[in-house]
Every structure is written in structure tokens, then in C-alpha cells.
Amino acid sequence: MRALTTIPLHGGTLQVSDVPDATAPDGHLLVDALAVGVCGTDREIADGDYGWAPPGRERLVIGHESLGRVRTAPDGSGFSAGDLVVGVVRRPDPVPCGACAHGQFDMCRNGQYTERGIKQLDGYASEHWSVEPDFAVKLDPRLHQVGVLMEPTTVVAKAWDQVEHVGRRAWFEPRTVLVTGAGPIGLLAAMLGVQRGLEVHVLDQVTDGPKPALVSDLGATYHHGDIDEVATAIKPDVVIEATGVGPLIFGAIAATSSYGIVCLTGVSPTRRRLTIDAGGLNREIVLENEAVVGSVNANLHHYQLAAQALAKADVDWLARLITRRIPVERFADAFVDQDDDVKVVLTFDGSGS
């Protein structure tokens, strides 16, 4: 079967390879792939900056943003042929650490976790794949064109879950949220804010293309000005930072109202210097009882929250987030950014352009 593979830590080795057909070990689902999303992590792996092949192997099948349809399922698994499913990315470490032992493998304490398509486990960018029922999540059948957005939705479902956990340290009735960045993570974070009945504002640098309309049609407000000016005007109770851009990160931390919560989801590049008034920032965080939390990955609870959020969403709006669908044979096109890109996906079902 066809699969998109690379040699981790060796840039320029991404290719469609012939690999052995997927089989379903006892108790596993066998799934026909429909699509995989392409994100910044995939680009880093393709560039040779990141990634680990399975033990004893040179090449890794990439792809962690999955969508497929069950071909076969074992009796009693809770799945049936034809079900629309995604596969969970991370697996708990074998020790396990305390967090993994409690099902919180997104919070692994010793780093011995593995991840489909990233770290020591083949991913979902193949014509067929198998997955344990305990690490598969069923989606509403209406999502057959957009369910590939599930994994990025789990990231923001966790972010909101973290915000709400922190908020419960005291009385917590947020009204206004600022999302920095209008990529897939930012737009999906905004969608979950709207679903919570909050006044949502999204800040990004572009002034045209699909993003402003996507934000407006969500019922949120789009901004492209300076973060200090925007924050002063709206006084957010919550900030979801989805860019990893240094000035925006520190602007977001300084932006919240008293008792504000900032959740950082964007991964920043290293070795870029930024001058800040660290003492002033610390003073504000302490005296205003503010909280800053980082959030990455997701566990099964967050996958369930994400599935519920997508089931409630406007499917037509979700479809507009996917700005390019590219057959896997033309994978190179997916790794070259275009100005109006929001989300790019590779397809295995013959769809795409």
C-alpha cells in the first residue's frame, strides 16, 4: 500500500513509499484512510528537524491528524464497519509515570511516551491503518468531509479545559476572550469560545483572504492591529495564544483583566532574543492574580470534548477551514505555503484538486 514516509532528522527524504499492507492484530480496528492534515509539526519532520522512526526502522510513516472509515472491527469493540473514526496520537509510556497511569498521557512526566507519526510509531498517512479501539474515537457521520480537523480541535479542547480548571481556583465567570492567531488552532479555539457563549475577539496580521470572514461568520470580531491597543479596548478575561510569536506572547500575558488567564498553545522558535520588562510583567501577574499556563497534546477526555464540539459546529463553516485538499501523490504541494492557506489536507480517497 502507499504511505507517506520520511527518514527522521534527514530533510528532503519525504516520499510516497510502498509499504506492507496494514493488518489488524487481534482486537484492533482496520481503517481505510480518508485524509490526514498537514501542520507545522509535519513540516518540521519533513525538514529533518524532528521525529523518531520506529525501533529498528529507517523510515517513519508520518501523519498524526487522521480521518478514516472502519473496514473491520472486533466484536464488542464498540465500533462497526463504516464508522467514521480518528486515531489518538499519543500512547502512554510503558513504565508508566503517575500521569500516564491515570490516563493523562498528555502530561507524561518522564518523556517515554510514543506518538503516531511523530515519535517511534508509524502515523496515519497510509492507505489503511490499524488502531486499538481504546485509542480510536468515533465521529458524527456528518463530519465525513471535515473530521480531519479533529486532532487540532483536541488541542484547543484541552486548552479550554485547562483554562476552566485554573478558573475554578475562585469565582470564575469570564465574558471576553482574545485569541491571537487565526490559523486552524486559533479559529477552532475561537469556535469553542463562541460555543461557550463568550464574546470572542481574534487578532491576526492579515487584512484579506478567508480569515476575517471566517471569524465574522463565526460570530466573533476580527482585529489586525497592535495587541496592546486591542487588549486595552476589549479587556479580555481569557487569552488563548496560538502563534508562538514572542511579542504576541508577552503582549498576551500583559493583556488580560485582573484575575485573567492566558493559555499558550503556540510553539516558539528558539534563539530569538526579545527585550522585556521582566520585573514589571512579574509585578502585574502577581498583583493581579493572573495565571499563565502552557498546553500541548491531548488525552482521551479531550478527544471526547473535541468530538462533541465538532458535532455541534456548523459543518459548512468547518469545511471553509480546509482551503486545499491534495491527493497524497502530490504531497509536495501541501508542504509549500500559499497566501490564503488555513488548513491543508492530504487525501487518500481520490478527492482533491
Rank of each mutant, 00 (worst) to 15 (best):
206 V>S: 14
123 G>M: 07
181 G>Y: 10
210 P>E: 04
120 Q>A: 15
106 D>I: 01
105 F>A: 10
130 S>V: 07
111 G>W: 10
130 S>T: 11
176 T>H: 08
173 E>Y: 13
127 E>Q: 15
149 L>N: 04
169 R>T: 12
217 D>F: 06
188 L>T: 10
113 Y>L: 06
138 K>Q: 11
133 P>E: 09
184 P>V: 15
101 A>E: 02
106 D>T: 00
214 L>T: 09
104 Q>G: 05
175 R>Y: 02
104 Q>F: 12
144 H>P: 00
129 W>G: 00
218 L>P: 04
209 G>R: 01
119 K>N: 14
197 G>R: 04
104 Q>D: 10
164 E>Q: 14
146 V>N: 02
165 H>T: 13
202 V>M: 11
147 G>Q: 12
212 P>G: 08
145 Q>I: 02
167 G>H: 12
173 E>R: 14
136 A>K: 08
143 L>E: 03
179 V>R: 01
164 E>G: 02
176 T>W: 03
215 V>R: 04
153 T>W: 04
101 A>T: 00
201 H>K: 09
188 L>E: 06
210 P>V: 07
115 E>I: 07
130 S>Q: 12
184 P>G: 07
106 D>V: 01
219 G>F: 06
123 G>K: 06
219 G>Q: 02
132 E>C: 08
177 V>C: 07
133 P>M: 09
